[in-house]
Design a protein around this nucleic acid. Structure first.
Lengths: 195, 195
DNA sequence: CATTTTAAATACTGATTGGTATGTAACACA
DNA sequence: TGTGTTACATACCAATCAGTATTTAAAATG
């Protein structure tokens, strides 16, 4: 990687960490410069303003991360009830970077930025839509395998699953990670009923 | 109400509306003064700083509002599956002040402030705890009435329901209110399985 | 009526915000 | 080796931030 590309990447990854913990608006450019040791000139050379950096962060950091942990485990369905529960369990309990106190980076940004900025909303919508599509497709494959009842609506299930995830990430911020285990237990009951 | 109490109340209710739409940190005191026509002297006479006002807003505006729309409908259970679904339906579709784009004031504040301020976290935790207790108690009454299976764990259900609500409020910010109807459909399937 | 307390108005402060203007090394390419 | 482009570095700017200091009007109380 070239030195310039390295600088740009440093800005994006460190901004991601700061914004995850502090929120987008509460993370100032000066704060980013301080922790990256990059100068303001370099920052505004690579991004024309703060929002463009935020968008790049969504597309280049958050999207690939969510694809790896949320979408990939659902491709090639073996047993949707297990596939989906396991995906949820892993992302809630086995990703060390994600702390209950700080929630989920994507959920946080949807919450903070969707009502304020149309570009952010569109970028974040792509994330959730792709995740919902993956759940939907997994359920459809499960129906073909007769593991899921034929009257189950995959789109509805996808919406409900994503809502559950977003919600427990929100609750975890106030209650801590103990609620994750409770959620996973009851989530299993919900999923079982799809068979 | 005295003139002073009126001023204080005006600050709280207008701050609530602004913070609901803009977020707590993004709503400046000057912004509040501008829309209330209250002066800075009056503001800092009634509240020693911004955070104290925010806490008062949670306790005096948000808490009573959530009690009326989320807790009260669950007291005196008739049929938990219907009680809980109806509570959810009404709060999602029938409270005109709440717009999908802006989500739920309490969920927003939990998301934004829980990791940053311990006092906010405690105040907001009281809200969700009281709501969860109401759901739990409703389910318990339903078990006594043999409308809910005896092996259902009311605490788990309460956690799952609150997570679903928080999550769909988050999704609605990006997707609009159409996802509310989908969620309510699938939520009914979840609840039915408790019988 | 006199005095004290409550409630509010005005003007200010230092710190921080996103962003700009300008300058300058390092490097690619002719 | 000269020239233009890339990739920064530094200093600055107007606007906005939460909060303070000081003054003043209104209301309660003796």
């Amino acid at each position: 990687m070239s030195k310039a590309a390295n600088t740009r990447n440093m800005i994006l990854t460190k901004s991601f960490e700061l914004i995850y913990k502090q929120g987008y608006q509460a993370t100032s450019i000066d704060n980013i410069l301080e922790t990256t040791k990059v100068t303001k000139g370099a920052f505004f050379y690579h991004f024309k303003n703060k929002d463009e950096m935020g968008l790049a962060m969504i597309n280049e950091i958050i999207y690939p991360g969510m694809y790896a942990s949320l979408v990939k485990p659902l491709l090639d369905a073996k047993d949707p009830i297990n596939d989906i529960h396991e995906m949820m369990r892993v992302v809630l309990l086995k990703v060390p970077f994600l702390r209950a106190k700080y929630g989920c980076p994507a959920v946080n940004l949807i919450e903070e930025m969707s009502p304020l900025n149309e570009d952010f909303k569109k970028g974040l919508l792509k994330l959730t839509n792709h995740w919902q599509d993956a759940i939907k497709e997994n359920i459809n494959q499960g129906k073909a395998l007769k593991q899921i009842r034929q009257d189950v609506n995959p789109e509805y299930v996808a919406c409900f699953v994503v809502a559950g995830y977003s919600g427990i990430r929100n609750m975890g911020k106030a209650m801590g990670s103990s609620c994750y285990n409770i959620f996973l237990q009851e989530f299993k009951n919900y999923l079982k009923q799809l068979a």
